[in-house]
Design a binder for these strands. Structure first.
Ligand code: ZN
Ligand code: ZN
Ligand code: ZN
Ligand code: ZN
Lengths: 131, 131
DNA sequence: ACCGAAGGTGAGAACGATTGTCAATCTCAT
DNA sequence: ATGAGATTGACAATCGTTCTCACCTTCGGT
């Protein structure tokens, strides 16, 4: 279910974008990343930033989210299934592994006759430092 | 934390929108709802549909979601905290109450020093009829 | 029932994030 | 080095959503 395995070539732009994304903690919009690249002297087209981020998202190298006003924001993310506990103030993020939840979802799904069930779970709170 | 308790007046339009939303099972976009109202002879402005749906969402009378291409879609939803198990084919939805998960999230959050933790959890699978 | 204040409505303009276009450029296997 | 095919970028085009603003409704007080 890895979509179209279109060949994906490494380029200067992709590297720069991935680097900036990895360097920052929280979620970033395509435009914010583009601005950062600009000010750091790296010339990359806005459309390219959009395309690269989309590619990273579908390849599992980044998480996507929509802000309440509909803007897509991205965050570097390790591959594999896991969840996040995010601070609503400073954006600090903890990756969580929840076997208990995985078990629970499987059970509940089965009880209702559903199969091939995927799930999304995200925790948003205030971290100790931002209390 | 119930936002601005602005007085909210009942109107013909709001009633119509709420009714159509409640009548349909899955998620609907503002434009789809508007189209339905049009064809059923109920004259309502598109902007009004957007505003009404937003209001319902903030009042907890509807769930909002963003499709992959960023469009906001709404679904009538009972108030109070709960989760959903949705069929990716036909849209059939089961509301789920998961005390086990609630407990788990609280525990994990505490372990990492987070407080006031909210969470979102959604299950998407294929129901028995659509297998 | 009558009135004024404040919320609500709607048509259309304005916005703004995202995507499409397409010629120039780059990567890679041969 | 070379050709095929992927990538890029400046800019136009989309399109969902919000803004404007004059007009309509609801509602509490009289
Ligand atoms: Zn924090
Ligand atoms: Zn999980
Ligand atoms: Zn189904
Ligand atoms: Zn819950």
């Amino acid at each position: 279910m890895t979509a179209a395995p279109t060949t994906r070539r490494p380029t200067r732009q992709r590297a720069a974008i991935a680097e900036v994304l990895a360097a920052s903690a929280g979620f970033q919009s395509a435009q914010e990343l583009h601005a950062q690249l600009q000010s750091s002297g790296t010339r990359v087209g806005l459309a390219t930033v959009y395309r690269a981020l989309q590619a990273m998202a579908t390849d599992g190298e980044a998480d996507v989210r929509r802000t309440d006003d509909g803007e897509a924001v991205y965050r570097a993310c390790s591959e594999g299934h896991h969840h996040h506990l995010v601070c609503r103030v400073c954006g600090r993020t903890v990756e969580i592994d929840g076997p208990a939840v995985e078990r629970w979802t499987a059970q509940v799904s089965a009880e209702h006759g559903f199969s091939d069930v995927d799930h999304t779970l995200e925790l948003v709170g205030t971290c100790a430092d931002c209390r």
